[in-house]
Simulated assay, not measured.
Amino acid sequence: MLKVENLSVSYGAINALRGISFDVKEGEIISLIGSNGAGKTTTLHAISNIIKKQSGKVIFAGQDVTNVSADIIVKRNLIQVPEGRRIFLNMSVKENLEMGAYTRTDKANIKNDLAKVYELFPRMKERINQISGTLSGGELQMLAMGRALMANPKLLLLDEPSMGLAPIFVDEIFNIVKTINETGTTILLVEQNAYKALSISNRAYILETGAIIKSGDAKQLINDPAVKEAYLGG
C-alpha cells in the first residue's frame, strides 16, 4: 500500500532523514519507533508532503505521490493525525468531526460514518455539542482520530497518539488503534511508547538520527535484547 524509497529530508545543515526505505502492506499496523529527534515525525510529514523532500520517492496505492500536494494526498485517502492533535478548539465536537469529511463527495455515506465514529468513541457522542477546547487530553486525541476517520482513510498516519496522556487513556487509545485496524484501516504509527507500539504492530522500523537501524517482526523486536535496552527500559 505504501512504499518509501531512499527518502532524505534536511533542515538547513541538519540531515533529518538520510535515505530511509520501508513499506507498509495493506491491513498492517507498522510502527516507527525511536527517541526524540530520530526523524519519526519528519517521515510522516514527508509522506504527506507537508515538508519538502531532498530526494526519494513515495508510492501510495500503486501511484507515485512524491510531488503530489498535501491537499490532493488527503483526497486520495492518505490521512494523518498530527502530533498535538490540532483540533479546532472553538468548535464543537460534531463540527470538528464534520470538518474531517470536507473533501468527501459521497455525502450519503457521511452520516453513516459519523455514526460509526460515535460507536467507536462513545465519549464523543456524549459530548457532541461540547466546545472541543473544554475536553481532556485523552478526549482530544479521540476527537482527532475520529476526525481523521471521517476522511475515510485507506492509510492512517498516527503521530504520537499517546503523548501526554494519563495511563488509563494510553491503554484505551491503543485498544482503539487496534480496533480501527481490525475494521479494515491500514496504520502507520509513530510512537515513543515503544512497548505499546510493538505490542499491537505487525512489523516495526527503528529510527536513529535519521536512519533505520533495525527492522523486523514486532514480536521479535519486543524480545530483542538491544531493543529492550535502548527503548523498553531494559
Rank of each mutant, 00 (worst) to 15 (best):
residue 2 L to N: 09
residue 4 V to C: 02
residue 4 V to I: 13
residue 7 L to S: 08
residue 10 S to G: 06
residue 14 I to G: 14
residue 16 A to K: 11
residue 18 R to D: 07
residue 20 I to A: 03
residue 29 I to K: 03
residue 32 L to K: 08
residue 33 I to M: 01
residue 35 S to I: 06
residue 36 N to D: 09
residue 37 G to H: 04
residue 38 A to I: 00
residue 51 I to Y: 03
residue 55 S to K: 13
residue 58 V to Y: 06
residue 59 I to R: 07
residue 61 A to T: 07
residue 62 G to K: 12
residue 65 V to T: 11
residue 66 T to I: 06
residue 69 S to M: 14
residue 72 I to C: 08
residue 77 N to A: 07
residue 77 N to E: 15
residue 86 R to I: 05
residue 87 I to E: 05
residue 89 L to C: 10
residue 89 L to A: 15
residue 93 V to K: 08
residue 97 L to E: 03
residue 103 T to P: 02
residue 104 R to H: 07
residue 105 T to N: 10
residue 107 K to D: 09
residue 112 N to R: 12
residue 114 L to W: 00
residue 118 Y to F: 15
residue 118 Y to W: 11
residue 124 M to F: 02
residue 124 M to G: 02
residue 125 K to H: 10
residue 129 N to W: 05
residue 130 Q to A: 11
residue 131 I to F: 06
residue 132 S to N: 10
residue 133 G to E: 03
residue 136 S to Q: 06
residue 136 S to M: 07
residue 140 L to Y: 05
residue 140 L to P: 01
residue 140 L to K: 10
residue 142 M to N: 05
residue 146 G to R: 03
residue 146 G to F: 02
residue 156 L to H: 00
residue 157 L to Q: 00
residue 157 L to S: 01
residue 158 L to F: 05
residue 161 P to D: 02
residue 161 P to A: 04
residue 164 G to A: 14
residue 165 L to K: 04
residue 168 I to P: 02
residue 170 V to F: 08
residue 171 D to N: 14
residue 172 E to S: 15
residue 173 I to K: 05
residue 175 N to I: 00
residue 176 I to V: 07
residue 177 V to A: 11
residue 179 T to F: 08
residue 181 N to Q: 14
residue 184 G to H: 07
residue 188 L to Q: 03
residue 190 V to L: 02
residue 195 Y to Q: 13
residue 196 K to I: 01
residue 197 A to P: 02
residue 199 S to R: 12
residue 200 I to F: 09
residue 202 N to Q: 09
residue 203 R to T: 04
residue 206 I to N: 06
residue 208 E to V: 05
residue 209 T to L: 14
residue 211 A to N: 12
residue 211 A to L: 10
residue 217 D to F: 06
residue 219 K to T: 10
residue 223 N to V: 03
residue 223 N to W: 03
residue 225 P to Y: 08
residue 226 A to N: 14
residue 231 Y to H: 04
residue 233 G to D: 07
